[in-house]
Nucleic acid binder design. Structure first.
Lengths: 356, 356
DNA sequence: GTGAAAGCGCTAACAG
DNA sequence: CTGTTAGCGCTTTCAC
């Protein structure tokens, strides 16, 4: 029925059929003023009939707008990221943008390489969830006022800080709550399973945890912190070491749920029980955390909201072409009490619950 | 140091600086014959100095090649898909392509909409992991010989079947193994938690399960199959119903691990134990399946390999511009025995282990 | 309201 | 080996 390989219809074809010029067709199809209602309707009818589909590549070349965003992810297979990816890609689609997924890990060279490609492809903006403190390309992006947002992690650059748009949770507060919760449950020796020290999340969470310890009257102790790079395996190994200590921790705070799962594995493999022997609190509230038998107490970081807001901010920035009005959004985290902390067994120690 | 907003250097600039024409520059930079070594080197040096970065949009417009692929996913937040997305995007990157992620669910209208946009953006090919039996756009894609691959799921269209490239696991065999395994453990009443009937995975797995039952001398029974659409919630509800039956199943086969988790939740909430009271086998071998306390017996479907092969096939198709030599790849699934089936407690019933 | 003409940056024929 | 010419499909002045 359909002739094979009918060359795609272009605005030229429509123009010809309508007896007008491509200019008019372009104006009409883009709903811009300067076209009479009659011709406009005719053009729309013809576009429909001829099965016209716009060529975005040509449009991009001319208008410098691709309606495509880049998304830098550390590792989409890590259970924390998929929800974020979903939220980001769906919000972007709703705004009329597509998303190119770049799974780049924390490898700086790879990030630089992808950045070049994405910019060569003319993406209108980029969402970074992979920002490291020493990422070298950020300053240039700012100087060129290329639109980007950092989500989850943020980055601080002296003198340019209000030009960096970021959406994060209050990581300091989240970690603070986690430690305070464990303290109130009666724990004084708390092992901290920390992330990658080049990330703002690790820095802020570790600081929040440290402050909470101080406020609870516990002297922070370097030996009680293990840097595990947000890796489940490293967290398992570190936990084994902790458990072999003479005065071992009675509780762990893992700076993300993936590491918390690692801690859990190591604890169970050592023949200890959670929470009876060891209490555990994570961070992120990934899906697995809620499954029966896992029931990880953790800090919810509203990941879907982070994704949504990041895209909205980025699109605003792109479309208004203005400097950002809002440059930082900080969401409030929430302690989600499940069973791994032991709260359901014994509640808070009465002498440790002060008014907030 | 850097002047602000230096308009991007183009091959024209390089041509001027080198005293040649854009053509020569284009040939040189694309490593194509017809340029003397000397000019070639000069051009490369200048490209470096002038910090040239190719404009892929312009190239696309001219050459009809975007080095971008589309990826259709049902739900990137479902734990089955992230590994696939990772494998696909990384393989694509290695081949010099980017991937646009389209999280489209099973909504046909949305799929059609995204397909139009992607084609408008000139993607060189598409990987569908969302194919449904009645997806309406497939025939047209084939007729236009637009490159695409279906991964995980396949689709059958009379008369065009060898033009559809697909990479799947042998779903029939996987389900067969699952049921046989449960039978050998002594189970005769096996509840089947089935997926979405419009998917080939559901059809094949259900058929494999049915055949296994027959071969084991068990009459398949419609009341023992619940269609749960690959949804954890529906699987929970169906399991509750199964458990309320007069002669309730002693085992469940869930056609994916997400539903198996749902079964698990429902069974545990009913106060029953896994595997002592109820045996459970899933399908996919997602990451969570291996966690202590979950330890789901399941069928591994080599998801990373599916992703890798899909991209390789697609890229071959695109770059050779030929009809596909290989049109179907079927991987072999593997039964992964953990604890949810109860094998570790009692092993196979000796009277039920026949030579394979 | 509409049209003519130019051009985004690159590649592809074809000539020399 | 290199240059000339044209044009991908669209948008965008600037005239009329």
């Amino acid at each position: 029925m359909q002739e094979s390989k009918p060359t795609k219809t272009t605005i030229k074809d429509i123009a010809q059929a309508a007896g007008v010029t491509p200019t008019t067709v372009s104006l009409a199809l883009n709903n811009r003023p300067g076209v009479s209602k009659k011709t406009r309707e005719k053009i729309f009818r013809l576009a429909e009939t001829l099965n016209y589909e716009p060529n975005f590549t040509a449009r991009s070349l001319r208008s410098k707008r691709s309606y495509t965003l880049g998304l830098f992810m550390k590792n989409i297979a890590d259970p924390f990221y998929p929800q974020l990816a979903k939220s980001i890609s769906e919000t972007a689609n709703d705004c009329g943008y597509n998303v190119i997924l770049c799974n780049v890990g924390d490898d700086v060279d790879l990030k630089v390489k992808h950045l070049k490609i994405l910019r060569g492809k003319g993406v209108d903006g980029i969402i970074f969830t992979t920002m490291l403190d020493d990422d070298p390309y950020v300053i240039q992006l700012i100087e060129e006022s290329f639109p980007f947002v950092t989500a989850v992690r943020h980055i601080h650059i002296n003198g340019m800080n209000d030009q960096i748009v970021s959406v994060t949770v209050d990581n300091f507060s989240g970690a603070y709550q986690a430690i305070q919760h464990l303290y109130r449950l009666g724990h004084d020796r708390i092992g901290i399973i920390a992330g990658d020290e080049r990330t703002s999340t690790m820095v802020d969470r570790t600081a929040g945890a440290g402050q909470a310890l101080l406020d609870c009257g516990i002297e922070p102790d370097g030996k009680m912190i293990a840097k595990c790079n947000y890796s489940r395996k490293l967290a398992m190994a570190a936990t084994r070491d902790f458990l072999a200590m003479k005065y071992r921790p009675s509780a762990f705070f893992a700076e993300d749920d993936t590491m918390a799962i690692g801690v859990r594995e190591a604890v169970l493999k050592a023949g200890l029980r959670i929470p009876e022997d060891i209490a555990l609190v994570g961070f992120d509230d990934i899906d697995v955390a809620g499954i029966t038998g896992i029931e990880l107490t953790t800090i919810n970081q509203q990941i879907i909201e982070i994704g949504r807001l990041s895209v909205n901010l980025l699109v605003d920035r792109i479309e208004k072409k203005s400097a950002p009005l809002v440059s930082k959004i900080v969401l409030q985290p929430e302690l989600v009490i499940r069973k791994s902390c032991g709260f359901h067994l014994k509640g808070y120690r009465t002498d440790r619950v002060r008014v907030k």
